[in-house]
Design a protein around this nucleic acid. Structure first.
Lengths: 221, 221
DNA sequence: AAGCACCTCGGCCCTCGGGCTGACGGACCG
DNA sequence: CGGTCCGTCAGCCCGAGGGCCGAGGTGCTT
């Protein structure tokens, strides 16, 4: 097994140097370059093919978030581990959306940093505890609509809900008949009940109800 | 500073015992009880007011997720640290939505478990690296819709998109006429163009297209 | 036994929606 | 200047969709 190749991107030369020493004196890890800004980091990563990029957030010319976005977008196999002084909310979220594999504060003990490098190199991910807490909170907030599914679909029977799903997939009455192996009258009957129960006027409003009640969620292909 | 009070909930007595020994022999940590199932855990937590609950997922009578949900729902100050053999997706997501502060696999080294207890007791959060990775991926996926809006609506003109929005609100042709101060023929014309451009058969499928393209997003009232 | 809820189905009626065609004015562009 | 795109509109056609009514079968509860 080869050494894990690490690229250090930070605008402070002193900090880059200490990281480099720390990494190079550790068995199994090697630095393959230093970058003083985001643009340089992207460029170096293309050439050196590091396994892990230690990326500062605040850097001149191009910040670490944007550099991460570019690296991931161009399909680089490098894992990005973000290092920052402060764990500002938006930086965290942008970094993770940009494709970072980790997010640590710069006050981590050296041993933890080295361990973190190994973790992200292995394809897993890892966050500072305070960041984890906020991410979980955010996740729970975003996911909570999924918590109370089918709100407003109380009176609807199983069969009717089944029909509603098919309507919300865009099927015509005839197609629904075929799909459920029932007659035309049956489908119309179910739909009539749905219209009444959901206070809808036509199937278009039923589609809306299906999305708004979480019966269907957009897949955004 | 008092010891951190820990409650251990797991259906395996052997495992409970070893955790108890591990915790009680560690300065700063004390166990205040053991529960063999979720219901017992909730009950004990109410009485003993632990700082941290080590909670197994699979337990008889009531699983750890549901127990977590109940504890958090009733405003318990206890932090819940989920321990599991496998990191199944849905368990992870449900646990976090239920309010858990952490999620670790049972194969963690003892030292890490002890450290994790301290972390969650301090109000922060912490996840197993593989869990972190998936949570981040899920987070990025959920957040990206705001990233790429209106995909698939390329050929559609401004006016047509306006009509599409109204259709997706459930308006009839007549209502759209009134809303836009135009004639009936005009609306039908726009709709015909929309049907062709979006390869839809009827207004119901237009509603679907509106949701799937992010023109409309569910509000889940 | 009776009642209820649900799924099933048929028939009648009529409106709304959508297909098709064609037309006019304005804006923009070569 | 002519061409193209867009928004506006009209007329005709007809079929899917939906309202309304009734009815039989099943399974569960009272």
């Amino acid at each position: 097994m080869n050494d894990i190749k690490v690229l250090v991107a930070d605008d402070q030369a002193l900090l880059r140097g200490s990281f480099r020493v720390l990494i190079d004196t550790t068995p199994g890890l090697t630095t393959v370059g230093e970058a003083a800004d985001g643009a340089e980091a992207v460029e170096l990563a293309r050439r050196e093919r590091p396994d892990v990029v230690l990326m500062d957030v605040r850097m001149p010319r191009m910040d670490g978030i944007e550099a991460t976005r570019q690296l991931i977008a161009e399909g680089s196999p490098a894992r990005v581990l973000i290092l920052t002084m402060f764990d500002l909310d938006d930086a965290v979220y942008s970094a993770l959306r940009a494709g970072a594999s980790g997010f640590l504060l710069k006050d981590v003990p050296p041993a933890e940093l080295l361990q973190a490098i190994r973790v992200v190199a292995s394809g897993e991910a890892l966050l500072a505890p305070s960041v984890t807490r906020r991410l979980i909170a955010e996740f729970a907030r975003m996911a909570e609509p999924g918590q109370a599914p089918l709100s407003g679909l109380e009176g609807v029977t199983d069969r009717e809900r089944e029909v509603l799903t098919l309507i919300a997939r865009g099927l015509s009455n005839q197609e629904i008949c075929a799909h459920l192996h029932v007659g035309n009258g049956t489908v119309k009957s179910h739909i009539s009940h749905l219209l009444a129960k959901l206070q809808a006027r036509d199937r278009a409003q039923l589609v809306i109800a299906a999305y708004e009640s979480n019966l269907i969620q957009p897949r955004h292909h």
